[in-house]
Design a protein around this nucleic acid. Structure first.
Lengths: 189, 189
DNA sequence: TTATTCATTGAACTAATATTCAGTATAAAT
DNA sequence: ATTTATACTGAATATTAGTTCAATGAATAA
Protein backbone atom coordinates (compact mmCIF):
# COMPACT_ATOMS: atom_id res chain seq x y z
CA UNK A 1 0.00 0.00 0.00
CA UNK A 2 1.43 3.36 -0.96
CA UNK A 3 1.67 6.14 1.58
CA UNK A 4 -1.10 8.10 -0.09
CA UNK A 5 -3.38 5.09 0.03
CA UNK A 6 -2.46 4.40 3.60
CA UNK A 7 -3.22 7.96 4.57
CA UNK A 8 -6.63 7.89 2.92
CA UNK A 9 -7.36 4.52 4.42
CA UNK A 10 -6.53 5.65 7.95
CA UNK A 11 -8.38 8.92 7.65
CA UNK A 12 -11.56 7.19 6.56
CA UNK A 13 -11.12 4.38 9.03
CA UNK A 14 -10.82 6.79 11.93
CA UNK A 15 -13.63 8.98 10.68
CA UNK A 16 -16.11 6.14 10.31
CA UNK A 17 -15.27 4.57 13.62
CA UNK A 18 -15.57 7.92 15.36
CA UNK A 19 -18.96 8.47 13.74
CA UNK A 20 -20.14 5.08 14.88
CA UNK A 21 -18.98 5.53 18.45
CA UNK A 22 -20.02 9.16 18.78
CA UNK A 23 -23.54 8.21 17.77
CA UNK A 24 -23.84 4.97 19.69
CA UNK A 25 -22.17 6.03 22.93
CA UNK A 26 -22.38 9.79 22.66
CA UNK A 27 -19.61 12.25 21.88
CA UNK A 28 -18.41 12.90 25.43
CA UNK A 29 -18.77 9.29 26.44
CA UNK A 30 -16.54 8.23 23.57
CA UNK A 31 -12.91 8.37 24.59
CA UNK A 32 -10.14 8.88 22.08
CA UNK A 33 -8.81 5.62 23.45
CA UNK A 34 -12.11 3.89 22.58
CA UNK A 35 -11.63 4.85 18.95
CA UNK A 36 -7.95 3.94 18.88
CA UNK A 37 -8.50 0.64 20.68
CA UNK A 38 -11.31 -0.51 18.46
CA UNK A 39 -9.14 0.18 15.40
CA UNK A 40 -6.05 -1.38 17.00
CA UNK A 41 -4.01 1.72 16.51
CA UNK A 42 -2.20 3.91 19.00
CA UNK A 43 -3.67 7.10 20.40
CA UNK A 44 -0.69 8.93 18.99
CA UNK A 45 -1.54 7.83 15.48
CA UNK A 46 -5.04 9.14 15.82
CA UNK A 47 -3.64 12.54 16.74
CA UNK A 48 -1.30 12.27 13.78
CA UNK A 49 -4.34 12.33 11.52
CA UNK A 50 -6.67 14.59 13.47
CA UNK A 51 -5.34 17.32 15.68
CA UNK A 52 -8.06 17.02 18.30
CA UNK A 53 -11.23 15.17 19.24
CA UNK A 54 -13.23 18.23 18.41
CA UNK A 55 -11.56 18.47 15.00
CA UNK A 56 -12.68 14.94 14.29
CA UNK A 57 -16.21 15.90 15.29
CA UNK A 58 -16.05 18.95 13.04
CA UNK A 59 -14.81 16.96 10.05
CA UNK A 60 -17.70 14.57 10.43
CA UNK A 61 -20.25 17.35 10.64
CA UNK A 62 -18.76 18.99 7.55
CA UNK A 63 -19.08 15.79 5.57
CA UNK A 64 -22.64 15.28 6.76
CA UNK A 65 -23.68 18.82 5.96
CA UNK A 66 -22.20 18.59 2.48
CA UNK A 67 -24.14 15.39 1.88
CA UNK A 68 -27.36 16.92 3.07
CA UNK A 69 -26.92 20.07 1.03
CA UNK A 70 -26.30 18.10 -2.15
CA UNK A 71 -29.52 18.55 -4.10
CA UNK A 72 -31.87 15.59 -3.92
CA UNK A 73 -33.83 15.39 -7.13
CA UNK A 74 -37.20 14.06 -6.10
CA UNK A 75 -39.90 14.41 -8.71
CA UNK A 76 -43.48 14.49 -7.56
CA UNK A 77 -46.95 15.52 -8.61
CA UNK A 78 -48.56 15.36 -5.20
CA UNK A 79 -46.47 16.69 -2.27
CA UNK A 80 -47.46 13.62 -0.29
CA UNK A 81 -45.60 11.68 -2.93
CA UNK A 82 -42.52 13.78 -2.22
CA UNK A 83 -42.42 12.74 1.42
CA UNK A 84 -43.12 9.11 0.57
CA UNK A 85 -40.30 9.03 -1.94
CA UNK A 86 -37.99 10.83 0.40
CA UNK A 87 -38.54 8.36 3.21
CA UNK A 88 -38.40 5.44 0.81
CA UNK A 89 -34.97 6.50 -0.34
CA UNK A 90 -33.77 7.35 3.14
CA UNK A 91 -34.85 4.00 4.55
CA UNK A 92 -33.40 2.13 1.62
CA UNK A 93 -30.09 3.96 1.95
CA UNK A 94 -29.98 3.27 5.67
CA UNK A 95 -30.51 -0.44 5.18
CA UNK A 96 -27.44 -0.56 2.97
CA UNK A 97 -25.21 1.95 4.70
CA UNK A 98 -25.61 2.28 8.46
CA UNK A 99 -23.41 5.38 8.48
CA UNK A 100 -26.13 7.36 6.74
CA UNK A 101 -28.38 6.88 9.71
CA UNK A 102 -25.51 7.68 12.04
CA UNK A 103 -24.72 10.87 10.16
CA UNK A 104 -28.35 11.90 10.29
CA UNK A 105 -28.34 11.58 14.06
CA UNK A 106 -24.93 13.16 14.53
CA UNK A 107 -26.13 16.32 12.83
CA UNK A 108 -29.48 16.34 14.59
CA UNK A 109 -27.74 16.10 17.95
CA UNK A 110 -25.10 18.65 17.04
CA UNK A 111 -27.86 21.21 16.58
CA UNK A 112 -28.64 21.12 20.26
CA UNK A 113 -27.16 22.86 23.28
CA UNK A 114 -24.07 21.24 24.74
CA UNK A 115 -22.32 21.26 21.36
CA UNK A 116 -19.30 23.51 20.76
CA UNK A 117 -20.55 26.69 19.10
CA UNK A 118 -18.70 26.39 15.81
CA UNK A 119 -20.00 22.88 15.26
CA UNK A 120 -23.49 23.75 16.37
CA UNK A 121 -23.76 26.59 13.89
CA UNK A 122 -22.58 24.42 11.06
CA UNK A 123 -25.12 21.76 11.96
CA UNK A 124 -27.84 24.36 12.14
CA UNK A 125 -27.15 25.38 8.56
CA UNK A 126 -29.40 22.64 7.24
CA UNK A 127 -33.02 23.07 8.16
CA UNK A 128 -35.20 20.33 6.77
CA UNK A 129 -38.18 21.49 8.79
CA UNK A 130 -38.43 24.86 7.14
CA UNK A 131 -37.79 23.53 3.65
CA UNK A 132 -40.45 20.87 4.04
CA UNK A 133 -43.05 23.29 5.31
CA UNK A 134 -43.11 24.91 1.85
CA UNK A 135 -43.92 21.60 0.24
CA UNK A 136 -46.50 20.91 2.91
CA UNK A 137 -48.26 24.16 2.05
CA UNK A 138 -48.51 23.01 -1.56
CA UNK A 139 -50.08 19.80 -0.36
CA UNK A 140 -52.55 21.69 1.77
CA UNK A 141 -53.63 23.71 -1.27
CA UNK A 142 -54.41 20.66 -3.34
CA UNK A 143 -55.98 18.96 -0.33
CA UNK A 144 -53.73 15.93 0.07
CA UNK A 145 -52.10 17.17 3.28
CA UNK A 146 -53.87 17.98 6.54
CA UNK A 147 -54.75 21.58 7.25
CA UNK A 148 -53.15 23.43 10.11
CA UNK A 149 -49.87 25.19 10.77
CA UNK A 150 -47.52 23.89 8.07
CA UNK A 151 -44.41 24.51 10.13
CA UNK A 152 -45.90 22.57 13.04
CA UNK A 153 -46.83 19.70 10.74
CA UNK A 154 -43.35 19.70 9.29
CA UNK A 155 -41.89 19.70 12.77
CA UNK A 156 -44.03 16.76 13.83
CA UNK A 157 -43.02 14.83 10.73
CA UNK A 158 -39.30 15.47 11.08
CA UNK A 159 -39.24 14.88 14.81
CA UNK A 160 -40.87 11.53 14.19
CA UNK A 161 -38.30 10.63 11.59
CA UNK A 162 -35.58 11.68 13.98
CA UNK A 163 -37.04 9.62 16.78
CA UNK A 164 -37.07 6.61 14.50
CA UNK A 165 -33.48 7.16 13.41
CA UNK A 166 -32.43 7.41 17.06
CA UNK A 167 -34.02 4.05 17.69
CA UNK A 168 -32.34 2.60 14.63
CA UNK A 169 -28.84 3.60 15.70
CA UNK A 170 -29.47 2.26 19.19
CA UNK A 171 -30.94 -1.03 17.94
CA UNK A 172 -29.76 -1.58 14.36
CA UNK A 173 -31.37 -5.00 14.19
CA UNK A 174 -34.81 -3.41 14.48
CA UNK A 175 -36.52 -3.00 11.13
CA UNK A 176 -37.69 0.40 10.05
CA UNK A 177 -41.43 1.16 10.01
CA UNK A 178 -43.57 1.32 6.90
CA UNK A 179 -43.08 4.63 5.12
CA UNK A 180 -46.83 5.13 4.95
CA UNK A 181 -47.22 5.01 8.72
CA UNK A 182 -45.04 8.06 9.06
CA UNK A 183 -46.38 9.87 6.04
CA UNK A 184 -49.84 9.49 7.60
CA UNK A 185 -48.81 12.21 10.03
CA UNK A 186 -49.16 14.56 7.07
CA UNK A 187 -51.79 12.83 4.92
CA UNK A 188 -55.32 14.15 4.98
CA UNK A 189 -57.74 11.29 5.55
CA UNK B 1 -36.42 28.46 57.31
CA UNK B 2 -35.80 25.44 59.55
CA UNK B 3 -32.99 23.10 58.84
CA UNK B 4 -35.35 20.38 57.68
CA UNK B 5 -37.02 22.75 55.27
CA UNK B 6 -33.69 24.00 54.04
CA UNK B 7 -32.53 20.46 53.40
CA UNK B 8 -35.63 19.57 51.43
CA UNK B 9 -35.42 22.81 49.54
CA UNK B 10 -31.81 22.25 48.53
CA UNK B 11 -32.34 18.63 47.60
CA UNK B 12 -35.18 19.51 45.25
CA UNK B 13 -33.45 22.57 43.94
CA UNK B 14 -30.36 20.61 43.00
CA UNK B 15 -32.38 17.72 41.59
CA UNK B 16 -34.51 19.89 39.32
CA UNK B 17 -31.61 21.95 38.07
CA UNK B 18 -29.62 18.82 37.36
CA UNK B 19 -32.55 17.36 35.44
CA UNK B 20 -32.88 20.51 33.40
CA UNK B 21 -29.18 20.71 32.54
CA UNK B 22 -28.68 17.00 31.97
CA UNK B 23 -31.48 17.04 29.44
CA UNK B 24 -30.68 20.33 27.75
CA UNK B 25 -26.90 19.99 27.56
CA UNK B 26 -26.47 16.27 28.03
CA UNK B 27 -25.25 14.40 31.10
CA UNK B 28 -21.54 14.37 30.31
CA UNK B 29 -21.57 17.91 28.98
CA UNK B 30 -23.11 19.14 32.23
CA UNK B 31 -20.40 19.92 34.75
CA UNK B 32 -21.03 19.76 38.48
CA UNK B 33 -19.87 23.36 38.44
CA UNK B 34 -22.61 24.22 35.91
CA UNK B 35 -25.23 23.03 38.33
CA UNK B 36 -23.64 24.72 41.33
CA UNK B 37 -23.07 27.98 39.47
CA UNK B 38 -26.57 28.25 38.13
CA UNK B 39 -27.93 27.76 41.65
CA UNK B 40 -25.36 30.12 43.17
CA UNK B 41 -24.12 27.51 45.58
CA UNK B 42 -20.67 26.04 46.07
CA UNK B 43 -19.59 22.76 44.56
CA UNK B 44 -18.91 21.51 48.07
CA UNK B 45 -22.54 22.04 49.03
CA UNK B 46 -23.72 20.02 46.10
CA UNK B 47 -21.59 17.13 47.27
CA UNK B 48 -22.98 17.60 50.76
CA UNK B 49 -26.39 16.63 49.40
CA UNK B 50 -25.43 14.12 46.72
CA UNK B 51 -22.35 12.01 47.05
CA UNK B 52 -21.54 11.98 43.34
CA UNK B 53 -22.69 13.16 39.96
CA UNK B 54 -23.76 9.64 39.13
CA UNK B 55 -25.76 9.43 42.35
CA UNK B 56 -27.64 12.53 41.28
CA UNK B 57 -28.36 10.92 37.93
CA UNK B 58 -29.53 7.76 39.64
CA UNK B 59 -31.87 9.64 42.01
CA UNK B 60 -33.47 11.35 39.04
CA UNK B 61 -33.97 8.13 37.15
CA UNK B 62 -35.52 6.51 40.23
CA UNK B 63 -38.00 9.33 40.58
CA UNK B 64 -38.87 9.17 36.89
CA UNK B 65 -39.30 5.41 36.89
CA UNK B 66 -41.58 5.58 39.93
CA UNK B 67 -43.70 8.18 38.19
CA UNK B 68 -43.94 6.11 35.05
CA UNK B 69 -44.77 2.93 36.89
CA UNK B 70 -47.61 4.61 38.80
CA UNK B 71 -50.74 3.18 37.14
CA UNK B 72 -52.37 5.52 34.64
CA UNK B 73 -56.08 4.89 34.62
CA UNK B 74 -57.12 5.56 31.08
CA UNK B 75 -60.58 4.31 30.19
CA UNK B 76 -61.33 3.61 26.57
CA UNK B 77 -63.70 1.74 24.31
CA UNK B 78 -61.63 1.95 21.18
CA UNK B 79 -57.85 1.45 21.57
CA UNK B 80 -57.30 4.46 19.34
CA UNK B 81 -59.05 6.42 22.05
CA UNK B 82 -56.50 5.13 24.53
CA UNK B 83 -53.60 6.60 22.62
CA UNK B 84 -55.44 9.87 22.01
CA UNK B 85 -56.22 10.26 25.68
CA UNK B 86 -52.72 9.30 26.66
CA UNK B 87 -51.12 11.91 24.43
CA UNK B 88 -53.72 14.49 25.43
CA UNK B 89 -52.79 14.06 29.05
CA UNK B 90 -49.08 13.92 28.38
CA UNK B 91 -49.11 17.08 26.30
CA UNK B 92 -51.29 18.86 28.81
CA UNK B 93 -49.01 17.87 31.67
CA UNK B 94 -45.94 19.00 29.74
CA UNK B 95 -47.43 22.41 29.06
CA UNK B 96 -47.82 22.95 32.78
CA UNK B 97 -44.70 21.25 34.10
CA UNK B 98 -41.66 21.26 31.83
CA UNK B 99 -39.88 18.78 34.05
CA UNK B 100 -42.25 16.04 32.95
CA UNK B 101 -40.95 16.35 29.43
CA UNK B 102 -37.39 16.48 30.74
CA UNK B 103 -37.92 13.35 32.78
CA UNK B 104 -39.39 11.56 29.80
CA UNK B 105 -36.26 12.33 27.80
CA UNK B 106 -33.86 11.58 30.62
CA UNK B 107 -35.23 8.07 30.91
CA UNK B 108 -35.38 7.53 27.17
CA UNK B 109 -31.74 8.51 26.84
CA UNK B 110 -30.68 6.49 29.86
CA UNK B 111 -31.86 3.36 28.08
CA UNK B 112 -29.14 3.72 25.51
CA UNK B 113 -25.48 2.75 25.38
CA UNK B 114 -23.05 5.09 27.06
CA UNK B 115 -25.09 5.06 30.29
CA UNK B 116 -23.66 3.44 33.45
CA UNK B 117 -25.04 -0.09 33.68
CA UNK B 118 -26.98 0.26 36.92
CA UNK B 119 -28.79 3.31 35.64
CA UNK B 120 -29.38 1.83 32.23
CA UNK B 121 -31.03 -1.26 33.66
CA UNK B 122 -33.29 0.80 35.86
CA UNK B 123 -34.32 2.92 32.89
CA UNK B 124 -34.94 -0.20 30.84
CA UNK B 125 -37.45 -1.42 33.44
CA UNK B 126 -40.22 0.60 31.83
CA UNK B 127 -41.10 -0.53 28.36
CA UNK B 128 -43.92 1.49 26.88
CA UNK B 129 -43.41 -0.05 23.46
CA UNK B 130 -44.20 -3.57 24.52
CA UNK B 131 -47.14 -2.57 26.70
CA UNK B 132 -48.68 -0.53 23.92
CA UNK B 133 -48.34 -3.29 21.37
CA UNK B 134 -50.94 -5.28 23.30
CA UNK B 135 -53.42 -2.44 23.03
CA UNK B 136 -52.55 -2.00 19.38
CA UNK B 137 -53.44 -5.63 18.74
CA UNK B 138 -56.87 -5.04 20.25
CA UNK B 139 -57.32 -2.10 17.91
CA UNK B 140 -56.30 -4.19 14.95
CA UNK B 141 -58.95 -6.74 15.85
CA UNK B 142 -61.74 -4.20 15.90
CA UNK B 143 -60.32 -2.54 12.80
CA UNK B 144 -59.55 0.92 14.12
CA UNK B 145 -55.78 0.46 13.99
CA UNK B 146 -53.69 -0.32 10.91
CA UNK B 147 -52.77 -3.89 10.23
CA UNK B 148 -49.15 -4.99 10.35
CA UNK B 149 -46.62 -5.92 13.00
CA UNK B 150 -48.04 -4.49 16.22
CA UNK B 151 -44.65 -4.16 17.86
CA UNK B 152 -43.32 -2.25 14.85
CA UNK B 153 -46.35 0.05 14.91
CA UNK B 154 -45.88 0.61 18.60
CA UNK B 155 -42.22 1.36 18.03
CA UNK B 156 -43.01 3.87 15.30
CA UNK B 157 -45.55 5.57 17.53
CA UNK B 158 -43.29 5.81 20.57
CA UNK B 159 -40.25 6.85 18.62
CA UNK B 160 -42.29 9.65 17.14
CA UNK B 161 -43.44 10.77 20.56
CA UNK B 162 -39.86 10.64 21.74
CA UNK B 163 -38.64 12.65 18.80
CA UNK B 164 -41.23 15.29 19.58
CA UNK B 165 -40.29 15.40 23.26
CA UNK B 166 -36.63 15.82 22.27
CA UNK B 167 -37.58 18.80 20.19
CA UNK B 168 -39.65 20.23 23.01
CA UNK B 169 -36.83 20.12 25.53
CA UNK B 170 -34.48 21.71 23.03
CA UNK B 171 -36.94 24.45 22.02
CA UNK B 172 -39.52 24.78 24.79
CA UNK B 173 -41.20 27.74 23.12
CA UNK B 174 -42.29 25.48 20.27
CA UNK B 175 -45.87 24.32 20.61
CA UNK B 176 -46.62 20.63 20.60
CA UNK B 177 -48.31 19.07 17.57
CA UNK B 178 -51.95 18.08 17.38
CA UNK B 179 -52.50 14.78 19.13
CA UNK B 180 -54.38 13.45 16.11
CA UNK B 181 -51.42 13.95 13.83
CA UNK B 182 -49.39 11.52 15.84
CA UNK B 183 -52.23 9.09 16.51
CA UNK B 184 -52.68 8.91 12.72
CA UNK B 185 -49.52 6.80 12.67
CA UNK B 186 -51.71 4.08 14.19
CA UNK B 187 -55.17 4.93 12.86
CA UNK B 188 -56.54 2.90 10.00
CA UNK B 189 -57.82 5.22 7.29
C1' DT C 1 -25.82 29.76 78.23
C1' DT C 2 -23.15 26.25 76.26
C1' DA C 3 -22.55 22.38 73.38
C1' DT C 4 -23.68 20.13 69.32
C1' DT C 5 -25.11 19.58 64.82
C1' DC C 6 -25.14 20.75 60.24
C1' DA C 7 -25.35 24.03 56.06
C1' DT C 8 -21.94 26.19 53.71
C1' DT C 9 -17.53 27.55 51.48
C1' DG C 10 -13.05 27.57 49.02
C1' DA C 11 -9.08 25.42 48.40
C1' DA C 12 -6.65 21.13 47.86
C1' DC C 13 -6.63 16.55 45.93
C1' DT C 14 -7.38 12.96 42.57
C1' DA C 15 -8.84 10.56 38.55
C1' DA C 16 -9.76 10.51 33.96
C1' DT C 17 -8.55 11.57 29.56
C1' DA C 18 -7.03 14.68 25.94
C1' DT C 19 -2.71 16.03 23.93
C1' DT C 20 2.33 16.15 23.05
C1' DC C 21 6.69 14.28 21.96
C1' DA C 22 10.98 11.71 21.35
C1' DG C 23 12.18 7.79 19.09
C1' DT C 24 11.71 3.87 15.48
C1' DA C 25 10.76 1.75 11.20
C1' DT C 26 9.61 1.94 6.54
C1' DA C 27 8.40 3.99 2.13
C1' DA C 28 9.75 7.49 -1.17
C1' DA C 29 12.99 10.58 -3.25
C1' DT C 30 17.74 11.91 -4.43
C1' DA D 1 23.08 3.90 -1.36
C1' DT D 2 21.91 7.67 1.21
C1' DT D 3 18.81 10.96 2.63
C1' DT D 4 14.34 12.55 3.65
C1' DA D 5 9.66 12.28 4.80
C1' DT D 6 6.09 10.15 7.27
C1' DA D 7 3.42 6.32 9.54
C1' DC D 8 3.51 4.69 13.88
C1' DT D 9 4.22 3.71 19.03
C1' DG D 10 4.48 4.23 24.10
C1' DA D 11 5.40 6.99 27.54
C1' DA D 12 5.22 11.69 29.42
C1' DT D 13 2.51 15.79 30.16
C1' DA D 14 -1.37 18.93 30.52
C1' DT D 15 -5.96 19.78 31.39
C1' DT D 16 -10.35 19.23 32.90
C1' DA D 17 -13.62 18.14 36.06
C1' DG D 18 -15.12 15.17 39.84
C1' DT D 19 -14.34 14.58 44.79
C1' DT D 20 -12.62 15.47 49.53
C1' DC D 21 -11.81 18.18 53.51
C1' DA D 22 -10.75 21.53 57.07
C1' DA D 23 -12.71 25.67 58.63
C1' DT D 24 -16.77 28.85 59.61
C1' DG D 25 -20.96 30.35 61.26
C1' DA D 26 -25.75 29.70 62.17
C1' DA D 27 -29.52 26.79 63.92
C1' DT D 28 -30.86 23.50 67.38
C1' DA D 29 -30.60 20.90 71.61
C1' DA D 30 -28.94 20.46 76.31
Amino acid sequence: MTRKEQKEFREKQILFKALELFVIKGYSETKISDIADSLNISIGLLFHYYKSKEQLYLELIKIGIDGMKAPQKIEYKDPIEYFSKFLDRLFEAIDKEPWICQMFILIARAQKQGTPDEIRELALSVNQIELSSKIIEEGQKIGSIKNGNALALSTAFWCSVQGIMEQKVALPQLSLPEVDWIVDILRKV
